[in-house]
Amino acid sequence: MPKFSWHTRAVPEGLPVRQVYGFLFVPDGRVLIRVDGRKHSLPGGRPEPGEVEYADILRRETLEEVTVDIDDPHYLGYQCVDDGISPYAQVRMAALITTAHPAAPDPDSGRTYRRLLVHPGKAGDLLSWGETGYLQATAAAEAAVTVLGLPGDGLPDEGYL
């Protein structure tokens, strides 16, 4: 069974980055959760050949999966996944959504994902990633206030984008 650990420093040299995911916020401070049936996840995915900039990967993936444009993403850290064979990193970033386009099918999967907006405090529960998920959601909520300048209190209830 893989082991997961959360780190707020840069990804170490030699540890491959296999995925980049984002906590994407709307101006009122809620975060977007991608919904596929009963599964909740963050928008993001794998780098394509030649892609090395985390921000570029996240921008492409969020447009493809949840049809939103984002501002400059802020690096939060990475989750190390140690499968006992070949450890790798999953980068996490936070960004402000600048434009929400009508929902459309993901060109890779053909699925149209729903976009749920929730209080950042609920993200850890919905993602069901255990302790590392809560640490990531907390880091994202802090960055939303301190880096993105979003409100931290008095957020509206959840709803769909």
Rank of each mutant, 00 (worst) to 15 (best):
L161N: 05
G22V: 08
Y160A: 05
R111A: 13
D56P: 05
H101M: 01
A143G: 15
R114K: 10
L32I: 12
A100T: 10
L96V: 12
A137Q: 04
V31G: 06
G110E: 12
P105D: 12
A103T: 12
A100Y: 02
H40Y: 15
A10G: 06
I57S: 03
W129C: 00
L117S: 02
C80F: 01
D106R: 07
V91P: 03
A10C: 03
G110H: 07
E13I: 13
A123Y: 13
E53G: 11
G77D: 00
G44L: 02
L63M: 15
A144E: 01
R114A: 12
S86W: 06
G152D: 11
V145G: 09
S109L: 05
R38W: 13
A141S: 08
G77W: 03
P2M: 14
G149P: 07
E142A: 11
L155S: 09
T138M: 01
Y54K: 01
E64L: 08
L76W: 07
R9A: 07
E131P: 01
R114G: 11
P120V: 04
R115N: 03
A141I: 05
Q19W: 14
P2Q: 10
A55F: 03
I33V: 14
V68Y: 01
T112Q: 12
P107D: 10
E51G: 10
D71I: 08
P156I: 10
A143H: 13
R46N: 15
K39D: 13
V66H: 05
R59Y: 05
A123R: 07
V91A: 02
P2C: 14
L150H: 07
E158A: 01
V35C: 10
R46I: 14
T112H: 07
S5E: 13
K3D: 10
L76Y: 04
P151F: 06
D71G: 15
R9H: 08
G29T: 04
R59T: 13
M1K: 10
L150N: 09
R115P: 00
V118S: 11
C80Q: 15
P156K: 14
T62D: 01
G121H: 06
E131H: 04
A104N: 08
K3I: 07
V66M: 02
T112E: 14
D56A: 15
R18L: 12
L15N: 03
R38Q: 11
L58R: 12
S109W: 02
Q19R: 13
A144R: 15
M1T: 15
F23Q: 03
E142D: 12
R114H: 08
Y78K: 02
Y21W: 09
G130Y: 13
F4Y: 15
V91Q: 00
A89L: 08
R34N: 08
D106K: 05
R46A: 15
I57Y: 01
S41R: 11
G130R: 10
Y113F: 15
T132K: 00
R60H: 08
E53A: 10
P87N: 14
Y134T: 03
P156A: 08
T132P: 03
D82H: 12
Y88I: 02
M93Y: 04
A139W: 04
V11R: 05
H40D: 01
G44H: 03
G50E: 12
L127G: 06
D36G: 11
P49S: 12
G121S: 08
V118D: 12
G154A: 00
M1D: 11
P47G: 09
G29V: 01
T98P: 13
R34G: 09
Y21V: 13
D56K: 10
A94E: 05
T8G: 01
R30S: 03
D36W: 10
D36P: 06
L15W: 00
